[in-house]
Structures are given as structure tokens and as C-alpha cells.
């Protein structure tokens, strides 16, 4: 995952070798043509064109991100989770869900 980068949807004509997919490319049946975070190459781009793929979502450079700001955002996401689960102290399933979400939110990119 690319810190400070944002996903943007572009047409395949704008895509170039070296760009990285921010979302998997799927075929008509939901089969994965290329997974998320795959780097595009000239040969994969040619193959996608042959299959008639029109658009893709790639990571583009965002504003440079201040590490302290990232840490504050992460702490805020975790604090929000504790608030959401404020009435779930007892439930066994709730605590397992909270634990899984803590990992998910801690790793999440802004």
C-alpha cells in the first residue's frame, strides 16, 4: 500500500507502464485479471487493451503526508471504534469483531 497515494480512476489510454493498480481489474464474470497493487507493464497494458478493458484505478501521488498527522488520524480512528462499541463490553462476538476492526483501522491509509 502506498502511503500518501490516492486511488484515481483513469481510462486505459492514460495508463502507463510503472503505474500501480489501486483496485483489482475483473473480467465479466468477476474473475481477477490483475490483482490490486499489481504494477502495470507494457505487455499487461497491451493484454488489457486486447480484452477491451476501458478503465482502471491506479494509485496517484497525493500531498506529502506528515507522519505526526498520520499518527493522530490513526489514533482518532481507534478512539472512534471504542466509542462505537461502547455498549458491547460483555458480548464475545462483539469483542472478536472489535479486535479484527482494530487491526483493519490501524493499517488503513487515509
Amino acid at each position: 500500500m502506498n502511503t500518501g497515494h490516492r486511488p484515481s480512476e483513469i481510462s486505459l489510454d492514460q495508463a502507463a507502464a510503472g503505474m500501480t493498480l489501486a483496485a483489482a481489474l475483473l473480467d465479466d464474470h468477476g474473475g481477477v485479471l490483475l490483482p490490486q497493487d499489481a504494477a502495470l507493464t507494457d505487455s499487461t497494458l497491451a493484454a488489457l487493451r486486447r480484452r477491451g478493458v476501458a478503465r482502471c484505478v491506479v494509485w496517484t501521488a497525493g500531498e506529502p503526508v506528515d507522519p505526526a498527522e498520520l499518527e493522530r488520524a490513526r489514533a482518532a480512528r481507534l478512539a472512534r471504534l471504542d466509542y462505537l462499541f461502547r455498549h458491547c463490553a460483555e458480548g464475545g462476538g462483539s469483542q472478536l469483531l472489535l479486535q479484527a476492526l482494530r487491526g483493519y483501522r490501524a493499517r488503513e491509509q487515509p
Partner: peptide
């Protein structure tokens, strides 16, 4: 509720059975 997708300030997660 837990993914906070409704965008409600006082959102709360209902209990979940293990």
C-alpha cells in the same frame, strides 16, 4: 454499524453473539 458507514455521530454497534 461497526464500519460506521451511515455517517451518524452517535452510532453504536449492537451486541454480536460469538
Amino acid at each position: 454499524h461497526a464500519l460506521d458507514l451511515a455517517g451518524v455521530e452517535n452510532e453504536q454497534v449492537p451486541p454480536l453473539a460469538e
